[in-house]
Structure formats: structure tokens, C-alpha cells
Amino acid sequence: MDETGKELVLALYDYQEKSPREVTMKKGDILTLLNSTNKDWWKVEVKITVNGKTYERQGAVPAAYVKKL
């Protein structure tokens, strides 16, 4: 869990989004888990830093590609 009490997951593999509802992640990324009720796809929040600014993006990733921490 992070400092706000939200559950975290670890990306076990790289994943490139294939639709606007998904998010890209790299192996080793730590993501915030938002919903894991679907056994195949979990909704997560990814933090992306671009030019020193951090953005948050929500989307789905394959459940088999992440592990709860």
C-alpha cells in the first residue's frame, strides 16, 4: 500500500497499450491498483513524468502482467 492506503501492484512485464482504455507500463513499474474485480484486466493508475511534470493516467492492464505488493 502507498501512503494514502491504496493498494500497489508491480509490473512483471512490459505492456504497450492497444486502445485508449489501456495504459502502457514497463517491467518494474509500481502502479496504483484502482479495481481488480475483473479477473483478466485490472484498472490501474500510472504516474508519467514528462519534462519534469508528473501526470496521472488511469487505464486497464492485463492482470497476469502485474502482481499485488
Results as ranks from 00 to 15, higher is better:
59 G>M: 08
59 G>T: 01
31 L>H: 03
48 I>Q: 07
11 A>E: 03
2 D>H: 14
51 N>Q: 09
21 R>A: 14
59 G>F: 10
23 V>L: 10
67 K>A: 10
6 K>M: 11
8 L>C: 15
42 W>V: 07
5 G>H: 14
15 Y>C: 05
54 T>D: 09
65 Y>V: 07
61 V>W: 02
43 K>E: 15
42 W>N: 00
20 P>L: 08
39 K>P: 14
15 Y>E: 02
63 A>H: 03
54 T>S: 11
45 E>G: 12
2 D>L: 14
7 E>K: 08
34 L>I: 15
31 L>Q: 00
44 V>I: 05
53 K>R: 12
39 K>Y: 06
1 M>P: 13
55 Y>A: 08
56 E>V: 15
10 L>M: 13
53 K>S: 09
17 E>F: 08
8 L>E: 06
28 G>T: 02
8 L>T: 07
55 Y>P: 00
47 K>P: 05
20 P>I: 08
62 P>H: 04
45 E>S: 15
56 E>A: 15
56 E>G: 11
20 P>F: 08
28 G>I: 03
56 E>S: 15
19 S>N: 12
12 L>A: 03
57 R>N: 03
26 K>P: 01
35 N>S: 13
43 K>C: 15
55 Y>G: 05
20 P>W: 08
12 L>P: 00
56 E>Y: 15
28 G>M: 03
40 D>K: 11
33 L>W: 01
62 P>T: 04
64 A>I: 09
38 N>L: 06
50 V>T: 08
27 K>N: 03
29 D>Y: 05
39 K>L: 09
65 Y>T: 08
2 D>S: 13
57 R>E: 03
19 S>D: 10
7 E>R: 10
13 Y>W: 09
12 L>V: 06
69 L>Q: 03
66 V>T: 01
55 Y>W: 09
33 L>I: 03
11 A>P: 02
38 N>I: 04
51 N>K: 08
29 D>T: 06
63 A>T: 04
31 L>A: 06
51 N>T: 03
57 R>C: 09
1 M>V: 12
68 K>E: 06
20 P>R: 08
20 P>Y: 08
31 L>M: 12
40 D>W: 14
34 L>N: 01
42 W>I: 05
37 T>Q: 11
40 D>E: 11
23 V>Q: 01
13 Y>V: 11
55 Y>M: 11
5 G>V: 12
11 A>C: 12
48 I>Y: 13
66 V>M: 06
62 P>F: 07
37 T>G: 09
58 Q>S: 10
12 L>K: 03
9 V>P: 01
54 T>Q: 11
12 L>H: 02
33 L>C: 04
5 G>A: 12
46 V>D: 00
